[in-house]
Design a protein around this nucleic acid. Structure first.
Length: 411
RNA sequence: GCGGGCGUAGCUCAGUUGGUUAGAGCGCCAGUUUGUGGUACUGGAUGUCGUGGGUUCGAUUCCCAUCGCUCGCCCCA
């Protein structure tokens, strides 16, 4: 054996794991496409400033979780910890702010230096979508509806609930933040250690603390509602109304906040009870300031990201492995002739395999092991007659089929 | 980053109160006389008992460290 292991927090996706992963990504891709979203494939690493500028100076992601290094040319680059910043950068650098709206879907690996846990990896994979341009609440509702459709298509929606909140726009948030700081400062003595540091860095985070003592204090903390400007309140009401119109069930949760600084207005999380402490399965919100921070024009946008691994774990059954047809020649001469049959099946789009060695018995065992549905058996006698024995491996029924007809017979 | 649990064949796991060649089931390879698998029978291969160090005449078993997985916290998808 080898003493080599996968790097901490990374995983090989093989067999069932790969099928779960692929199924999640393909389903999302398909449904996003039906909503008019195009897939963008942006680089896996970016200039470090793409993230450091935009995710928030104080966020954990930026301060301690990024894979940042200097490349051989002396430039600081970072393995993307999330997808939104890169998409916005691509929007700006490709001059696409002139052709809004843009509806972007993406899927790929993200990197965060965290302590690995179930549902939390250092290299993990996300699907996500960004709707850039529209400032209307209809955009928020549509993006959420698309996410909900994906969860439904994956059949993981039953144990998943959409939790919704508004963070208001800058003005509302500033006022609220002030009120929160005042409130929590008054209760400083009873707050947990973690929350004391949050009080300085990001007071809104205290709202979703899991600490018992914190929760008691949070229960009576002011909510953003009272601090919402007229416009922000109207916007939020409209989002809720439209979600109902799209048929997306939700639950308001004033404690939903976002970890990254660029969010405002709508904030949401699809949460499941089935993944322990890693229960957030899809999350996002509106981020009207990000494109501007990236050096583009002031551009509204809304989007979400979801963890492929987490969704994959929720799938009640792994997608079935593909079922092949086994081509089974008897003897060397037949093996040569069987190649023609083999290729004709493949050309017809049928997954066909021929073992590389072994007598008839061996090859039949092998066919059984790869869970072939059918064996196409070719012996000298059959070849002389221009036929093959096509055997259904489930029922054991077997019949002679003429060589040119086999592909059609099995289709 | 903090705290708890775990680490024996490809897989699931047993075992050694410290003592000669470490086990089972499944899987794998081969055979049961040469054109038919899924069942059965027979035989076979595989482990530096996660890694490194310490204690000991002797360690897979005890101690320490380390790596990895896992659960909770933190954070987040």
């Amino acid at each position: 054996m080898t003493d080599l292991q996968p790097a901490r927090g990374t995983h090989d996706l093989i067999g069932e794991d790969q099928r779960r992963h692929h199924h999640v990504a393909e389903t999302a891709r398909r449904i996003a496409a039906s909503y008019g979203f195009d897939e963008w494939i942006t680089p896996i690493f970016e200039d470090t400033r793409v993230f450091s500028r935009t995710l928030g100076e104080t966020s954990d992601v930026v301060t301690k979780e990024m894979y940042t290094f200097e490349d051989r040319g002396g430039d600081s680059v970072t393995l993307r910890p999330e997808g939104t910043a890169g998409v916005c950068r691509a929007l700006v650098t490709n001059g696409l702010t002139q052709s809004l709206p843009k509806k972007v879907f993406y899927a790929g690996p993200m990197f965060r230096y965290e302590r690995p846990q179930k549902g939390r990896y250092r290299q993990f994979h996300q699907i996500g979508m960004e709707l850039i341009g529209p400032a209307e609440p209809l955009a928020d509702a549509e993006v959420i509806a698309c996410g909900w459709d994906i969860l439904k298509a994956l059949n993981v929606h039953a144990d998943t609930i959409l939790e919704l909140n508004t963070l208001g726009e800058l003005e509302s948030r500033a006022a609220y933040r002030e009120a929160l700081v005042a409130y929590f400062t008054a209760h400083k003595d009873s707050l947990s250690q973690d929350s004391l540091t949050r009080l300085e860095r990001n007071p809104m985070r205290i709202l979703d603390s899991k600490d018992e003592r914190d929760r008691k204090i949070v229960a009576d903390a002011p909510t953003i509602e009272a601090h919402l400007t007229e416009a922000a309140a109207t916007f939020y009401a409209k989002v809720k109304e439209l979600l109902a119109r799209f048929g997306v069930p939700f639950r308001e949760n004033p404690r939903i906040v976002r970890g990254l600084d660029y969010y405002g207005h709508t904030a949401f999380e699809f949460v499941t009870t089935k993944l322990g402490s890693q229960g957030t399965v899809m999350a996002g919100g509106r981020y009207d300031g990000l494109v501007a921070e990236m050096g583009g024009p002031q551009t509204p946008a809304v989007g979400w990201a979801a963890g492929i691994e987490r969704l994959g774990m929720l799938l009640d059954a792994a997608p079935a492995a593909p079922v092949p047809v086994a081509v089974v020649p008897i003897g060397d001469e037949a093996e040569a002739a069987a190649i023609g049959v083999l290729q004709s099946l493949r050309a017809a789009g049928i997954r066909a395999e021929m073992s590389y060695r072994g007598n008839l018995r061996r090859r039949m065992e092998r066919a059984n092991r790869i869970e072939a549905r059918t064996a196409v058996i070719l012996g000298a006698d059959d070849l002389a007659k221009g036929v093959a024995q096509v055997k259904d491996l489930k029922t054991g029924a077997q019949e002679a089929v003429s060589l040119p007809d086999i592909a059609a017979f099995l289709a």
